[in-house]
Design a protein around this nucleic acid. Structure first.
Lengths: 339, 339
DNA sequence: CTGAAAGCGCTTACAG
DNA sequence: CTGAAAGCGCTTACAG
């Protein structure tokens, strides 16, 4: 492959001049500039970004840590990240962590060695030992779809507690009283416990009875988890009329359990999902769900990282994008009905 | 950040020695090795992969060009790629192209400058001008979910023509005679025309009447395309009993159109999808579909690229992984029924 | 406007 | 076993 020296030789100038036509063309006489451009074209010369990065200590490369890109939620969020990156001339190195600490550490080490300018960390809480690792790296970091109340790390997400509240309130407004929730895991303070807390706050605010032992089951956001959780829920509480699931996949799993049990959705039981991934409108009946601006979370997270890299610092430390309920066909309004 | 010089100073040795403990530890005396290791630890030293890459002319970084990662099919394929990469110590730079030539060119240029070792190109045919671009880059390339018969580029995919054939044969074996297809676009020779040709071959082989004007509609693999195509199909051909859609999403779109039209699936019309993305078993009724080993295609494509990089050359130029039909709930066996 | 030289952070013969 | 030196492909003052 041609290097700057080859171009210099062919064009009959010094390598400094080549560098100049690439970085500050108007500082070079028209005559030489054209000769150089021709030589570049002729040799198919591509400047070596490693050499450049070594000098500038910038690579225009960002790291992204994501639990699992084959998960629809992350796939869509990642698209937002990539678009933001591309728009501002950055490339992305991505790594799936499966929420595995070792995998994360080794990815981060290797990204660090490749001199990424900064990275986005997704969906997991920032545990103290994670914070230590981030610190030792000395790289700018932004959190997407997670946040830290303890540490001053910029983050972009929705208000999960409020989303849980709004979900319950929506079902209540639709006339439901015996409501259950399929929550995310206990160990997930962000999308798990916050939503459940918001949900319970709404029940309290509306002075509705809510026995969490009978009305809450847990799952890890996947379809099978939703199926199994609905099974347990139905087993101990067959008189409920509405269920809020903390992910669309779990909602669909719950629907499938009910379908197999001969329970009609939404006629007998209403199901409210969460996320509004594209499956929500591709399944049947089409899923009513609490929509997150997933793409925007990814986009905004990378934009925030870029603001930090520009030295301006992020406009706001903790950004909350707004959620909204998208009414489709799985929640029935039972106001006025007689039980 | 600490450099090799800082470590050398702290450990009281030359930078050569630092380099040796990192790359050939047994060539260094135990005494010095330990001192160096301690200094590395103390300074949180991370070697700079740019400098190393400059010398080795290898970066252990691979490029991936994909139309759209938020598409379920590619998300799953990409997961396979990333796993293969990680297993063999490679990192991945990914770029969404939206099948846009300019976007592809600029991504490739930037990946080339960052000295990727090779790249995987996905899903689009290798047009002659693409081939020229690949050639000028001088980088190893492997095709995933596409292939080239004109050029000797390694590729990994299923046999799409045969998949189309098997799809039709399956419906025929289930007793269907008046069968239609929702195909991919005319402009897509790989997943579009090949599957249609295989489909038509099966109809011919079985001596079934097949008027392509009445029995084929086209769409771009998305849900809405499937809905619209089914609408056109139903409009001109309401006596059909089975439809093969060239993607799961189009199949689901078709089902939704039929549902809205009061046509029962599979009792009145059977639907056969293609891909077996995870939505196939998350929708209701659960979709019968021609399964592609999507993850494996991605995994194998990167493995093949790594074989090329190892200098061995790919074991086989054109790899075909096998598809299989997964029977679920949207295709009805009508053998023995009276029409 | 232009070129020679130093330097970015490493690796790798080469001598000892 | 160890270190000094050259070199990977660039950029950037510095002189002219």
């Amino acid at each position: 492959m041609a290097t700057i020296k080859d171009v210099a030789k062919l064009a009959g100038v010094s390598i400094s001049t080549i560098s100049r036509v690439l970085n500050a063309p108007d500082k070079v006489s028209k005559d030489k500039r054209e000769r150089v451009l021709r030589a570049i074209e002729q040799l198919k010369y591509h400047p070596n970004a490693l050499a450049r990065g070594l000098i500038h200590k910038k690579t225009k490369t960002l790291g992204i840590l994501i639990p699992d890109i084959s998960n629809y939620y992350y796939a869509e969020m990642f698209r937002g990240m990539e678009d933001a990156a591309q728009e501002f001339g950055h490339n992305i190195i991505i790594c799936n962590t499966d929420k595995d600490k070792q995998r994360m550490i080794s990815a981060l080490r290797s990204m660090k060695e490749k001199q990424i300018d900064g990275f986005v960390f997704t969906s997991e809480p920032v545990y103290p030992d994670y914070y230590d690792i981030f610190n030792q790296l000395g790289l700018p970091v932004v959190l997407a779809s997670t946040q830290s109340l303890e540490y001053a790390i910029p983050s972009v997400k929705i208000d999960d507690e409020q989303a849980g509240f709004d979900a319950a309130q929506y079902l209540i407004d639709c006339g439901h009283r015996r409501i259950a929730m399929i929550s995310g895991p206990h160990l997930d303070p962000i999308a798990g416990m916050s939503r459940l807390q918001g949900f319970m706050r709404a029940m309290r605010t509306n002075e509705l009875d809510f026995d969490s032992a009978r009305c809450v089951e847990f799952g890890n956001y996947r379809y099978d988890d939703g199926y199994a959780a609905m099974e347990r829920l139905w087993d101990k509480n067959p008189e409920l009329t509405a269920v809020f699931a903390a992910s669309d996949e779990m909602a669909l799993g719950a629907i499938y359990f009910l379908y197999r049990s001969g329970v009609r959705v939404p006629d007998e039981v209403s199901i409210l999902g969460m996320d509004n991934t594209r499956i929500a409108c591709m399944s049947l009946p089409r899923l009513t769900t609490v929509a997150q601006p997933i793409y925007e979370i990814g986009y905004k997270a990378v934009r925030t990282l870029q603001e930090v890299l520009d030295g301006a610092g992020p406009a706001t430390l903790r950004t909350y994008l707004s959620h909204q309920i998208v009414a489709r066909d799985t929640v029935k309004n039972v106001n006025g009905e007689i039980f």
